[in-house]
Structure formats: structure tokens, C-alpha cells
Design a protein around this nucleic acid. Structure first.
Lengths: 242, 242
DNA sequence: CGCCTCCTTGAGTTGTCTCAATGAATGTGG
DNA sequence: CCACATTCATTGAGACAACTCAAGGAGGCG
């Protein structure tokens, strides 16, 4: 696979079609790192580090004293991970690869250099970081005010949408390496309850799943059920005049 | 009050003591806007707008179809509000002042110009935006994995810490314009349950409150109860070597 | 073969919600 | 200055969504 192609796809609508973002980024980043599935990510010690996920999935999470875990971000190809605390002196969360993954280390200098070489490309990167924040705040609404069923439905639609933006979903189905335990830790539920909710969605013929794949059977009812409104993802299909 | 003094205080440890951030920002921003309490904030229509809160409190929130509300950010003086979607074409949340407030409109250009005039000041602003994101992700952990009692205790400590950074809290007490209904909407609880939790904290002699003031009576037990770890706020007192 | 991880289901418990209601404080208009 | 509406904090009683504990089956792997 071409390096940076997932990010380039995600930012397609923010850049001229003849702009070669991968080439620009390749000139600015150090080599890539390949990690196996379920490996802890090294976010640095003296200085915080962050990554661009080029291939595979990764996440950041916090473990609480009572042993529970909350996954804060789930990153797919083209997403940044750990960028939140790049400028911090400290850090109080951990990260892990979810699948075998290819990562590029990023630094504040790289963002800066991108901006100077091409303000438009720099702006596109900032847009991507904004989108991460917007996803985070939508998840906050999930956990604060939506039922488990709504949460799960909403999250499946979000994943499908995000994967679609990088060409990794189509026809309503996608490959999802998240186990039910992980999904529960993303959505603030117990694995047991998540399992029951998944069954409910399956029994209502809204989704089907198995063997690491999820299929959306009735997008409309699913979106209605979870009041999914893709505006928080600011995708290219959205009307700028609204 | 000096314009931008709250922000300057918050960023004190990121800038040289003789650096005049207020003067730099004054040269870059348009005039201030003063709004009464409980006024909807205008985040723009064609192009999204964002603000720096110079005085007073403000928030952003989403209202769901079932009528419930989730407050996503609560901004105090020196915080940005609405910056999350500054680069977006769309927006799906609302904002409101919580008290009478003084706001400065900010734009991507302003951030850029600050950066060019002083990379250090620009970096400090980016740090502040990172902190907002870090606060958001800590709240996510609250809603996902902490009990109501832990959440409330944790949030009170956070508020006291943040207010302390701008010189608006001391001796364990601070002025808090959030009604119990608003606090419930921040923490994903019903006002009724929040009220019971507040009573519990009061009866355990952990806090006292009333007439818009909150007093922390036993910080240690409160921090222990909620496993409060201020690292996510990346304050100046934290050891950079950790 | 034994040992994982993952998914699944049952039964009982509990944290939080819903519905209902009251008193205090504040503001408004007649 | 009173009648009225509104917001806010508070409490009780009952319901339910999600949790805990317990257990079993399917599949992968050394």
C-alpha cells in the first residue's frame, strides 16, 4: 500500500485532486514502525510522542483504580493517535495497537513544517485533528445521554462512515477487529450487557455480525434509532450552507 | 480587568515572565462582545465562529431528540469555546453563556498570526487547546466508568484546579454559577440524582455548598474517592520527567 | 490435550431514572 | 404591595436499565 494513502483519502475533499499529500508527508516524517496486534504503544517518556496510523487499528485508554478500562479513542488508518498530549509534559493514559499496524511518528515540528510548505495541507491536518475532537465529543453525548442500544447503533454507524471515508467499507459491511470486550470498553458498558444489546440489534434485523465483520442491514432504522446525524464528522457530502 | 489576563495567567508557565501576551493578542483580535447570562452564542452560519472567554462562564451542548441535554464543554475565563469546529463546514451543537460574559472572537487566521509573530505564544495557545481536549477525554472516562459520586467529586476538583490556574479559587472554595440542573447535564445525570449525590458528599463532610459557592472541606478524601490525578490538566506543578 | 480468548446465557442485585410533590427565593406586572 | 409565575433545591416511592456473579460452549494454539 502507498504510504499515507488512507489519510490522503480522508482529506481528499480538502485538497486539490492533483495535490500529492503522500509525497509531502514522506519528505517530513521519519521511517514507519510496524507493530503486532495488542502491543502497547510507546508514547515516549521525557517528551510525548504521537503517531499517524497508516494501516491497522489502534486505541488509547485509561485504566481506573477499580480495574475497569475506558477506551478513549479508536484510531483507524489515516487517524492520529496520542496527538492530544503532544505538547504536554505529562501523560496519564496508555495506548495499544488493536491489529498489526503501521505507524508514523509525528511531532509538532512536522505539523508546522507541513503548514509552511503548504498552508492548505497544514489546514487539512488541523481539520483531521478537529474531527478527532468532534468524534470525542459525540462519544461524550453517547455516554452521557444515550441508552446502550442507541450507543451501539450510533457507534456502528460512525465506524462505517469513517471507514467509508478511507475506502474500507462499502455495501454496509466492514471488517471490525474490536472484540465485544473492547467495544464495551469504548462504549462504557460491560461486555455482558453489550452482548445482549448486540443480540437485540441482530434480532431486530438491524445488523448482522460474526468473524470480525459487521453488516448494516437497515441503515435507516439504525440511524433513526440512534439519532445519528453525520454532521459531527463534517464529511464531504454535507452542505456547507446549512 | 485587563483583557486576556485570565488566559495569560493560565499560560504563565509556558511563556517568559516578561512576555506580554495580552498586548500581542490585543493587536490581533477584533473588539470584545459582552453578553448577558443565558444567551445563546452565535457560532456563525456560513462560516463557524469560536470565542475566547475573557470573563464569565459559557458552555456548548447538544440537545437530543428525546429532549435530554448533554453539556460538552464548560468554559471559564481563559478558555476557548467552539474551537472544535472552527474548520468545519457544519456544526451540530449549540452554545450558551452561563453568566454575563466577555468574549473575543477568534479565527484560524488569528492563531496563525500569533504563531508567526511568536512561535512560543502560538505553541502556548495550542497547548491550551490540547488541554481542552484532555479535559474532554477525562470527562469521557467519568461518564463511561465512574459512579455518580466519583464523577461529581472528580468534577469539583477539576473545577477548583482550573479556577486556581486563573486565580479564581483559593482556600478550597470557589464561585460556581452552575445550577444543579446544569451540573447534571455536564455529568450525564438527572438533576434529582445529582442532588442526592451532593447531599451524600455534604453529609460525609467532603464539601459544602450554597448560594453559588462550593467549598472543598477534605481535598484528600475527595481526591482519593474519585481517583483524581491532575496530570490530565498538565499543570505547572507537575514533574516533566515523569 | 489443556489453556487461552471470545461469545453467550441465566438469575439476582443495584445504581440511577421517572413520576410526583413541596418549600424557598426571585422576578414581574397590576 | 400583593398575586402570580418561574427557577431552584429537596425528598419519597417505585421502576427499570445496566451491573455482578456464575457457568458453559466454540474456536484457536502450543
Amino acid at each position: 500500500m502507498q504510504p499515507f494513502s488512507a489519510l490522503a483519502k480522508k482529506l481528499r475533499s480538502h485538497l486539490d485532486s492533483d495535490f500529492d499529500l503522500p509525497r509531502l508527508l514522506a519528505s517530513l516524517t521519519t521511517r514507519s514502525i510496524t507493530v503486532d496486534a495488542r502491543r502497547e504503544l510507546d508514547f515516549g517518556s521525557r517528551r510525548n510522542r504521537a503517531y499517524l496510523i497508516d494501516d491497522g487499528w489502534a486505541c488509547t485508554y485509561k485504566i481506573l483504580r477499580n480495574g475497569t478500562r475506558q477506551i478513549v479513542d479508536v484510531g483507524i488508518p489515516g487517524d492520529f493517535i496520542g496527538a492530544r498530549t503532544l505538547l504536554f509534559r505529562s501523560r496519564d493514559y496508555s495506548g495499544s495497537s488493536l491489529t498489526r499496524a503501521v505507524l508514523y511518528e509525528i511531532s509538532p515540528r512536522m505539523l508546522e513544517a507541513t503548514y509552511q510548505l503548504s498552508p492548505k495541507a497544514g489546514g487539512a491536518l488541523l481539520w483531521a485533528i478537529s474531527q478527532d475532537q468532534s468524534i470525542l465529543s459525540e462519544r461524550l453525548v453517547d455516554l452521557g445521554r444515550r441508552t446502550a442500544l442507541e450507543r451501539v447503533a450510533h457507534y456502528i454507524l460512525e465506524l462505517e462512515y469513517r471507514l467509508g471515508a478511507i475506502g474500507s467499507s462499502g455495501g454496509g459491511h466492514f471488517v471490525c477487529p474490536l472484540s465485544q470486550t473492547l467495544l464495551a470498553d469504548v462504549l462504557g458498558l460491560t461486555p455482558i450487557h453489550l452482548n445482549r444489546v448486540m443480540r437485540e440489534l441482530r434480532e431486530q434485523n438491524l445488523i448482522s455480525y460474526g468473524e470480525g465483520r459487521v453488516t448494516i442491514l437497515d441503515r435507516e432504522r439504525l440511524a433513526d434509532l440512534s439519532s445519528f446525524d453525520a454532521r459531527y464528522l463534517d464529511g464531504p457530502g454535507l452542505d456547507p450552507e446549512r
